[in-house]
Write a protein that binds this DNA or RNA. Structure first.
Length: 273
DNA sequence: CTGGGGAGGGGGCCC
DNA sequence: CGGGCCCCCTCCCCA
C-alpha cells in the first residue's frame, strides 16, 4: 500500500497554519447537523497495537528519509531545468512542491531502466534527458496564471488530465474531488460549537472537540497513557521503543520524531551533512 | 538543550 | 462523488 506521503520530504517550515486571526476572516458556516464530540465509533485500542520489539523495521514508512542522503540522485540544476520553470506560479516559492504533482499517476514501469532524471515539479523520474524535457513541457503548459476554479484542457499527447485550479491559491489538482478537498482548507466549513474555531474537515473538528471534552480514546498499551489523537499516540509509542524510528546517519542515534532528529542535526552532530 | 505531548494541517485511499 | 479515515508531518509549548 504505497502511501505517497513519502514523496513529501521537504523539511521547511512552510505551513499554512490557519490561525484564529485568519479564521475570523473566514465566512465559515456552521453546519446545522454538526457532529458533536462523538465518540470514535471505531475501536480505539485494537487498531493501535504497540510494537515493543519492532525497532526501525516499519515496513513502508521506515525512515522516510529523515536524512537526505536517501535522496536518489542529485543532478546539476541545469539538467533539471531544461525549461524556464520560473514562470510557474507555484514553483517560485517551491513551498508545496506541487503536492499533487504526478504523485500517483505515474507508477514506475517495470521495464523502465535506470531512472536518473527527476522532475522538480512532480518528482517523476525519466531515463533520459529528452524524456524529462518532454515531460516538463506539461508543467510548462499546465501553469496558466489564472487563479480561479476552472479546468484547463491540456494537449492530449502530453497529459490527458485536466487541471483544476484553486481560486484561492495557485494550487492545481488533477481531479475535481481533490480540488474540492483542498478548497475546504480555505473555506473551513467545520466550526467548533464551543469555541468557534473552524476546520477544513469534520474529523479534524472531532479531534479538536476532544480538547474540550478531554476525551482520549487512544490509549497506550504500555503505560496506560491516553491520547486524543492517534498520531500523537503513535509518536508516543516511539518513546517506548529502544530504537526509534528516525536515525541519525552519522552517529546512528535514533529519535522518536523527525523534528528531534532535525534538532539533533542542527545542534552540530553531523557538521558535514 | 532535549524529549515529549498537544494540536492541527495536508493528501490519499477506501467504502 | 463525498465522507470517513489513515498516515505523515509540523509547530508550539512545557518539563
Amino acid at each position: 500500500m504505497p502511501r505517497s506521503f513519502l514523496v513529501k520530504k521537504y523539511f521547511s517550515s512552510k505551513k499554512p497554519h490557519y490561525r484564529e486571526s485568519q479564521l475570523d476572516s473566514q465566512t465559515a458556516v456552521v453546519p446545522e447537523s454538526f457532529p458533536r464530540a462523538e465518540l470514535p465509533t471505531r475501536d480505539n485500542s485494537s487498531a493501535l497495537t504497540c510494537h515493543p520489539g519492532s525497532p526501525i523495521s516499519t515496513p513502508m514508512d521506515a525512515l522516510p528519509a529523515p536524512l537526505s542522503p536517501i535522496t536518489p540522485v542529485s543532478l546539476p540544476p541545469s539538467l533539471l531545468h531544461p525549461l524556464d520553470l520560473s514562470s510557474s506560479p507555484s514553483s517560485s516559492s517551491s513551498s508545496e512542491e506541487e503536492e499533487d504533482g504526478g504523485r500517483t499517476s505515474d507508477p514506475p514501469s517495470p521495464d523502465a531502466v535506470q531512472h536518473i532524471y527527476y522532475c522538480l515539479h512532480c518528482s517523476k523520474s525519466y531515463g533520459s534527458l529528452s524524456a524529462l524535457s518532454h515531460h516538463q513541457v506539461t508543467h510548462h503548459q499546465l501553469s496558466p496564471p489564472v487563479p480561479t476554479l476552472q479546468t484547463t484542457s491540456v494537449t492530449p499527447e502530453v497529459s490527458a488530465r485536466p487541471a483544476f485550479h484553486c481560486k484561492h491559491c495557485p494550487k492545481e489538482y488533477t481531479s475535481l474531488g481533490a480540488l474540492k478537498m483542498h478548497i475546504r482548507s480555505h473555506t473551513l466549513p467545520c466550526v467548533c460549537p464551543t469555541c468557534g474555531k473552524a476546520f477544513s474537515r469534520p474529523w479534524l473538528l472531532r479531534g479538536h472537540i476532544r480538547t474540550h471534552t478531554g476525551e482520549r480514546p487512544f490509549a497506550c498499551q504500555h503505560c496506560n497513557r491516553a491520547f486524543a489523537d492517534r498520531s500523537n499516540l503513535r509518536a508516543h509509542l516511539q518513546t517506548h521503543s529502544e530504537v526509534k524510528k528516525y536515525q541519525c546517519g552519522s552517529c546512528s542515534r535514533t529519535f522518536s520524531r523527525m523534528s528531534l532528529l532535525h534538532k539533533h542535526n542542527a545542534s552540530g552532530c553531523c557538521p558535514g551533512s
